[in-house]
């Protein structure tokens, strides 16, 4: 699984940090740090993070299906 966050879009709403705290972390008020290659057991939580992002800044590629969320 590959995760990319468009940091130009990201507005630090931090919704991904609630949905998948082990993969996304906000340092200070607005610097987002994330895991670009989470392990498969995080899939559900990553999907939540993608869905919860108010500016749709997170894209993810699953190894079985490419580009299910953009």
């Amino acid at each position: 699984m590959r995760v990319v966050v468009d940091l130009n879009r990201c507005q630090a709403y931090a919704q991904c940090c609630y949905a998948a705290p082990e993969s996304f972390e906000l340092r200070g008020a607005e610097i987002l740090v994330y895991d670009p290659a989470p392990t498969p057991e995080h899939r559900g939580r990553i999907e939540r993070a993608v869905q919860a992002c108010p500016v749709r800044a997170i894209s993810v590629e699953f190894d079985d299906t490419i580009g299910t969320a953009s």
Binding site: Q11, Y13, Q15, Y18, A19, Q51, A52, P54, V55, R56, A69, S70
Partner: peptide, 20 residues
């Protein structure tokens, strides 16, 4: 739908704090 950017939690500074 692939790009569901709704305004149901508002947006910007006042984006719903309780959304999660």
């Amino acid at each position: 739908r692939p790009d569901n950017q709704h305004f149901s939690f508002g947006g910007s500074l006042h984006y719903c704090l309780g959304a999660p």
